[in-house]
């Protein structure tokens, strides 16, 4: 791990620091709402917002970098013709309290939205973002980020990484933007002492020992690369998939989308990008009704193979970050860990 800068932030200084940051940019952090749900939300008032760093946020950063619905253009049909206008520029945004799995997902999105073409709408937001992660000292019940190499602490990719070492945060700057922030607000921080380093290391070892789920991601990946697709497993899983798309929506790396025009009136409309799910039957259906994918037996095939086999072949890493959100959302009980368990349970042929 190479960091540009390391400093210590006493916890008493956290809110004063965030107050300074909020003056310069939009501030997004995990906030517990009145219903007890913790969701990444924009902070309007630091004194009244309940920033929740104890529970896993139910949402990831996906809704901010790839909104559930986004205006890609406005179109006009009139005497001047059929013309399109792009949307406005984005504002600078600081994300605080982002978990390791969710930052890993952002790095994956960076890849997807840059090859072979750079998605200008995604990068307009991404280039205006600064991400501060919080390493996980206490993995949550469904977490398995250790098996996907995306936690509990990160090695790279963050602008700043915070590790809670008791009465202060151990802070590492992984990118220039993060290091610049530390320089700008240097009076909030103190230098790192040897005992801070020891505390951090001790906590990392303890965190690694606290995972309760044993998900054999690497084993499943190797098997999927080498062996024929497990047809019998698809059929068993597809029977329990209800086409709700929940797994794809909560997944921080499910980036498939649809493009549609919304008519406002005879002369104008919006070109919208909305989340889509490859598990749904309409995903591959063509004009005229023909569908090259038989959903009855292959409802989940694309999604799981895309994450564990195809992305591994294409990019050299899986696109599951072990956040575990799809486990609770799936009422059919056919989340990705069920699939991994089935793949790894089959005797080698």
């Amino acid at each position: 791990m190479i960091d540009l800068k390391e400093l210590i932030l006493p916890k008493d200084n956290l809110i004063p620091l965030l107050r300074k940051l909020k003056k310069e940019a939009r501030l997004i952090a995990p906030v517990q709402n009145a219903y007890g749900d913790t969701l990444f939300s924009e902070i309007s008032d630091l004194d009244s917002a309940h920033i929740d760093l104890d529970n896993q946020p139910q949402s990831s950063l996906k809704p901010f970098l790839l909104p559930q619905q986004e205006i890609l253009a406005r179109y006009q049909v009139d005497k001047a013709g059929y013309t399109f206008t792009p949307p406005e520029d984005e504002q600078e945004t600081i994300y605080f309290g982002v978990r390791s799995c969710d930052l890993t997902a952002v790095l994956y999105m960076d890849l997807i939205f840059s090859k072979p073409v750079k998605d200008t709408n995604y990068y307009a937001r991404r280039n205006q973002s600064l991400i501060i992660t919080l390493g996980c000292n206490h993995p949550f019940a469904n977490c398995f980020c250790e098996a996907t190499a995306s936690g509990p602490y990160l090695e790279y990719g963050y602008d700043l990484q915070f590790i809670d070492i008791g009465d202060c945060y151990f802070i590492s700057a992984g990118r220039i933007k993060g290091a610049d922030l530390l320089d700008q607000w240097s009076y909030f921080f103190r230098e790192v002492q040897e005992e801070d380093r020891k505390a951090r290391y001790q906590l990392l070892l303890e965190a690694r020992g606290k995972f309760t789920r044993n998900v054999q991601v690497a084993h499943a990946c190797r098997r999927l690369q080498k062996e024929p697709d497990p047809e019998a497993i698809w059929e068993a899983l597809s029977r329990r998939c209800y086409d709700c798309g929940g797994c794809a929506y909560v997944c921080p790396t499910c980036t498939c989308f649809s493009l549609d025009d919304m008519v406002l009136d005879d002369t104008q409309g919006l070109r919208l990008r909305s989340w889509d799910a490859c598990t749904s039957s309409g995903f591959t259906r063509m004009a005229g009704g023909h569908n090259p994918v038989d959903r009855r037996c292959h409802a989940l095939k694309r999604r799981f193979l895309h994450k564990l086999k195809d992305d591994f072949a294409r990019h050299g890493k899986v696109s599951c970050t072990g956040c575990g959100r799809c486990i609770d959302i799936c009422f059919g009980g056919v989340d990705i860990t069920t699939f991994i368990d089935l793949v790894t349970a089959v005797e080698a042929s």
């Binding site: 072979p116 073409v117 998605d119 493009l259 490859c278 591959t284 090259p292 294409r314």
Partner: peptide, 24 residues
């Protein structure tokens, strides 16, 4: 091949075919 496509440039995922994208 003919497939349902939305973006045409390898991002939206609709024409995903194993580790390939039909559009690119």
């Amino acid at each position: 091949l003919e497939r349902h496509m939305k973006c045409g440039m390898g991002i939206c995922g609709h024409c995903h075919l194993d580790d390939k994208l039909v559009c690119v």
